[in-house]
Design a protein around this nucleic acid. Structure first.
Length: 784
DNA sequence: TTTAGGG
DNA sequence: CCCTAAA
C-alpha cells in the first residue's frame, strides 16, 4: 500500500484485503481492484519492446477506463483509435507504474497503491523520478519518464497559456520548437538527423503517433512517445564497454558532463559496436515501404565521411554512452565495427542533440517510419532538459529483436535479474564485455521469460507463448482462465534473466512473445456501498463495474475470509454487509465465465474451481454487444482472429462506442444511488424448452391448474430453478399463447399440439374449478 | 408456504 | 419474471 495518499480523504483507512480489496471508507469500498485473474496478453510481436508497449497500452486502458481521463491516439496494427477526454497524467502515471513494475520487478507490487493524481502537476515527474531512480538500478531510464516529464510540462504550460492554445497553437508550438532545434543543431552542434516521413501505414505493429486531439500537449507527448518507441527500436548500440569503470556515471548530470567531455574530444577513441541496428534500419527503409527517408547529415569535418549507418550508430552510441551506464560504459576506446569506417573522435559530439529522429520500426520489417515534420521535434521544456530527457529516452533499455541482423550477428535480449532489460547486439567476433555484473545473459533472437525465474510470484510471465510469427503484425489477446489468486495478487514480470538463456531453442523461433499476467489489480474502482447493501448487491456492483471495464466474459466470485463461497445470489442478496472491521472478510475475484476454459496452470492454488449453480451465464451488466460474450479462450497463435483479440479490442476501446467511454469511466465511481431494490439482481430469464412445456402440460392435465406445488414436484422436482410460481406463470403464458394467433407468438415455437392440450386442459380444469367453486358456495350457503 | 393475479 | 395479497 505504498504510495497511497489520498489528499482528499485523510480519514479513510486503507486496508488491503487478501483478495485485493481495499476499504477506504466506512460505507464505501475502494476496490483497488477486484483481482483480475489470469489475463493473458498474447503478443505476436517481434519486439519485446513492442510487446511491452502494447501491454502497457492495454493495461493503461484499464486505468483509463477507470479514471476516464486521458486521450491517446494509438495506431494499432493499422487501426487507430482515439481515446478522448482526459488528462495525460493518468495514463502517464500508469505507465509509470507499470514500467516500474515491469522493470523494477518489485515484489508484491500490485496496483493497489496506485493513486491517481488529483490534477496534473509537474511535481509528479520529478517526484517519481527520484523515487524510481533510487528504487531502480539507477540505470533505468525510460520513455515513460520522459513522457511524464514532458507531459507535466505541457500540461502546466497548457494551463498557463491555456486559453491561447488550441490545436493550432499546438502546431505552432511544434514548429517553433522545431525551428529552434534546427537552429540549434545547425549551429553549435553537429547533428545527424534522419527525417522520415510518412506515418501510419508503416506496417509497424505498434506505433503511437501523433495525437489528433485538440490538446497540444498530448500531441507532443505522443510524439515523444513515438520517439521513445522508435528510438528504442533503433536500439542498436549494444554494448560499448570500457576498460575502466571509473567513468561510470550515475546521474543525468554526470552524463551530461560526460558528454561535454566527449565533445571536447577527451573521450573515447574507439567505438565498438557489434552490429548496430542501423544496418537493419537502413536496409529496411530501402526495401520496405519505400518510404522516403531523408537523412541530413551535417557535414562536419569529422563526420563528413561517415555513412548513414555510422551516424546512426554514433548517435545511438553517444546517446547510450551518456545514458545507459549499465549498458554502456565509458571507455577510452570505442570501436565501431559496423563494417563501416570508423568514426573519428570528433564525430561524437555530433550526437548531442539530434536524436531528432531515428525512427525505426520494430517490426521485423522495420520500416522506416515516418513522422510528419511537425513530429520531428520533440517538445522540449527547455533545451537543456530536453536534451537530457531525450537522451534518457534514447538510452532507455528495452529489448528488441532486430530482424535484419546479418549472419553471425545475434541479437541478445538480456533480462537481467534485476529486471533490467537490455538490448544487446552481439557480434560473433565482438562480444561485449560486461563490466558491471554478470547479469547479462544473451539469448538469441528471442526473449524468454522463464516461469521458474519468477517462481516467487503467484503468476509469472509465462514463456510458453514465445513463438514467433513475424510479419503477423501483432495480435493481442487477453484471455482469462479460472483462477483465484489468494493473497495479494502480484503482477509478475520478467524477474530474471539468467534462466532465459537456458531456453534458447533455435534461432528460427519466431519472435512471438507472450506475456502472461496471472493477476493484476484494476486500479481504483471506487464503489460506494449503501448501508443497506448486501453482499449480493455489492457483488453485482462489482460485476457491473468490471464488465464496464473489461467487457463480458467474466464473473465475479465472492470470497469470504479468503475462501470462495458458493455463489448463490439469493443468499448473497440477503447477506448484509457489516460495516465494521469485518469487512476484511469480504473479497471478490474475477473469473472467466465460461466453463470450458481449461484450468490454468495455477489451478492447484485455488481453493475451489469456481462453482456456479446455474450453467447459464449470469445476466450481463450492462448488456454486452453481441459477440462480445463469446467465450474467452486461451490465446493461441492466431489470437488475431479470435476472441482474445476481440477482448483486446474491447480493451482498447474498439468495442465500445466512444460516447460510452465517459460513462464507463464514471460507472465504477458512483453508481450507488440506486435503491437497494434495484440493486437486487433479477433472476435470469430461462425460457421454457418444448420438453419442459410438455412436462408441464402433462402434469397440469393430470393435476389441474390449482396445484402448482404438486406440479412442481411431479414434473420439475429436479429443476431447481423452476419454482411453482414459475410453472404457474408459464402455464399462464401458455394459455395466452395458445389463444393468440401463431403470428403473434414469439420465442421458441411451441408445437400446436401442446397448445391445444393446454387449452383443453385449461378449459377442463377451469370448469372443474368452477364446479368446485359452486359446490363450495353451495355448501357455504347450505351451512348458512 | 402456497395460490392467484396483476405488473 | 417479479411482487404480493390472501388463503
Amino acid at each position: 500500500m505504498n504510495r497511497k495518499e489520498d489528499g482528499g480523504s485523510a480519514c479513510r483507512r486503507h486496508l488491503e484485503l487478501a483478495v485485493g480489496i481495499t476499504i477506504s471508507a466506512y460505507n464505501s469500498y475502494r476496490f483497488v481492484s477486484p483481482v483480475l485473474t489470469c489475463i493473458k496478453f498474447d503478443l505476436s510481436l517481434s519486439l519485446a519492446l513492442t510487446s511491452l508497449v502494447v501491454l502497457l497500452t492495454g493495461l493503461s486502458f484499464l486505468q483509463f477506463l477507470v479514471l476516464g481521463d486521458l486521450q491517446l491516439f494509438i495506431c494499432l496494427g493499422g487501426a487507430s483509435k482515439t481515446f478522448e477526454n482526459g488528462r495525460v497524467w493518468h495514463l502517464l502515471s500508469f505507465w509509470y507504474d507499470l514500467y516500474d513494475m515491469v522493470l523494477q520487478n518489485r515484489l508484491g507490487y500490485g496496483f493497489n497503491g496506485y493513486q491517481v493524481p488529483p490534477a496534473p502537476r509537474a511535481a509528479r515527474s520529478a517526484r517519481r523520478r527520484g523515487s524510481i531512480r533510487k528504487r531502480v538500478d539507477d540505470n533505468q531510464m525510460c520513455a515513460f519518464d520522459l513522457l511524464a516529464t514532458v507531459a507535466g510540462k505541457l500540461l502546466l504550460e497548457g494551463q498557463g497559456s491555456a486559453s491561447a492554445s488550441n490545436t493550432q497553437n499546438g502546431k505552432e508550438m511544434c514548429t517553433i520548437v522545431e525551428d529552434s532545434i534546427k537552429k540549434e543543431q545547425q549551429g553549435a552542434y553537429k547533428t545527424s538527423k534522419v527525417e522520415v516521413c510518412d506515418q501510419g501505414s508503416c506496417g509497424r505493429s505498434f506505433f503511437v503517433s501523433e495525437l489528433v486531439s485538440q490538446t497540444p500537449g498530448l500531441h507532443h507527448i505522443s510524439k515523444e512517445f513515438s520517439h521513445a518507441h522508435i528510438d528504442d527500436c533503433s536500439g542498436l548500440a549494444s554494448v560499448i564497454t570500457s576498460s575502466d569503470g571509473s567513468d561510470k556515471v550515475d546521474s543525468s548530470d554526470k552524463l551530461i558532463s560526460g558528454k561535454s567531455k566527449n565533445q571536447t574530444g577527451n573521450f573515447a577513441s574507439k567505438v565498438e559496436v557489434a552490429s548496430s541496428g542501423c544496418e537493419s534500419f537502413d536496409g529496411t527503409m530501402e526495401d520496405e515501404n519505400k518510404e522516403q527517408t531523408k537523412m541530413e547529415l551535417p557535414k562536419t569535418g569529422n563526420a563528413s565521411n561517415t555513412t548513414k549507418a555510422d551516424m546512426c550508430s554514433l548517435d545511438d552510441l553517444a546517446v547510450r554512452f551518456r545514458k545507459s551506464h549499465a549498458l554502456v560504459s565509458l571507455d577510452n576506446s570505442v570501436k565501431l565495427p559496423l563494417g563501416t569506417d570508423h568514426v573519428h573522435t570528433g564525430s561524437f559530439p555530433t550526437c548531442r542533440d539530434d536524436v531528432n529522429l531515428v525512427i525505426r520500426d520494430d517490426d521485423e520489417n522495420s520500416s522506416g517510419c515516418t513522422l510528419p515534420s511537425t513530429m520531428k521535434k520533440t517538445f522540449r521544456p527547455s533545451p537543456r532538459v530536453g536534451d537530457r530527457r531525450i537522451r534518457k529516452l534514447l538510452a532507455s533499455k528495452y529489448w528488441k529483436v532486430t530482424p535484419k541482423l546479418k549472419d553471425g550477428e545475434h541479437f541478445n535480449a538480456v533480462l537481467s535479474p534485476d529486471s533490467e532489460i537490455k538490448p544487446v547486439y552481439h557480434n560473433k567476433k565482438t562480444s561485449y564485455k560486461r563490466q558491471r555484473s554478470q547479469r547479462d545473459y544473451p539469448i538469441k533472437k528471442r526473449i524468454l521469460y522463464d516461469r521458474s525465474s519468477v517462481s516467487n510470484f503467484d503468476g509469472g510471465v509465462s514463456r510458453e507463448g514465445i513463438s514467433s510469427s513475424p510479419r503477423k503484425g501483432f495480435s493481442f489477446g487477453a484471455s482469462c482462465s479460472a483462477a483465484t489468486v489468494h493473497g495479494a495478487p502480484r503482477a509478475a514480470f520478467g524477474k530474471s534473466a539468467g534462466v532465459a538463456s537456458r531456453h534458447t531453442p533455435s534461432q528460427s523461433q519466431d519472435s512471438h512473445v507472450k506475456l502472461h499476467i496471472k493477476s493484476f489489480k484494476v486500479p481504483e474502482l471506487f464503489i460506494e456501498i449503501p448501508e443497506t447493501a448486501t453482499v449480493g448487491s455489492l457483488k453485482r456492483t462489482v460485476m457491473e463495474a468490471v464488465m464496464a471495464i473489461l467487457g463480458d466474459g467474466l464473473r465475479v466470485g465472492v470470497l469470504l475470509q479468503g475462501k470462495k463461497i458458493r455463489d448463490d445470489n439469493k443468499t448473497l442478496l440477503q447477506t448484509g454487509i457489516s460495516h465494521d472491521n469485518k469487512l476484511d472478510a469480504l473479497g471478490f475475484s474475477l473469473e472467466p465465465r465460461h466453463l470450458q476454459a481449461p484450468p490454468p496452470p495455477c489451478h492447484e492454488d485455488h481453493p475451489l474451481p469456481l462453482t456456479c449453480d446455474a450453467p447459464q451465464p449470469l445476466t450481463r451488466y450492462p448488456p454486452a454487444p453481441s459477440g462480445v460474450h463469446t467465450a474467452v479462450q486461451h490465446s493461441t497463435a492466431d489470437a488475431l482472429s479470435d476472441s482474445p483479440f476481440t477482448k483486446f479490442r474491447q480493451l482498447i476501446g474498439l468495442y465500445m462506442p466512444e460516447t460510452n467511454v465517459e460513462a464507463l469511466a464514471i460507472v465504477p465511481m458512483k453508481k450507488s444511488k440506486r435503491s437497494e431494490a434495484e440493486a437486487v439482481q433479477r433472476r435470469i430469464r430461462r425460457p421454457f424448452s418444448v420438453s419442459e412445456v410438455e412436462a408441464l402440460v402433462q402434469a397440469v392435465e393430470k393435476l389441474g391448474t390449482g396445484r402448482w406445488r404438486d406440479v412442481k414436484m411431479r414434473a420439475f422436482d429436479n429443476a431447481k430453478h423452476r419454482t411453482y410460481v414459475d410453472l404457474k406463470d408459464k402455464w399462464k403464458t401458455l394459455v395466452h399463447t395458445a389463444r393468440i394467433s401463431p403470428q403473434q407468438r414469439r420465442g421458441e415455437p411451441v408445437p400446436q399440439e401442446l397448445l391445444d392440450r393446454v387449452l383443453a386442459a385449461h378449459a377442463y380444469w377451469s370448469q372443474q374449478q368452477a364446479k368446485q367453486q359452486l359446490k363450495h358456495q353451495s355448501e357455504t350457503f347450505l351451512l348458512l
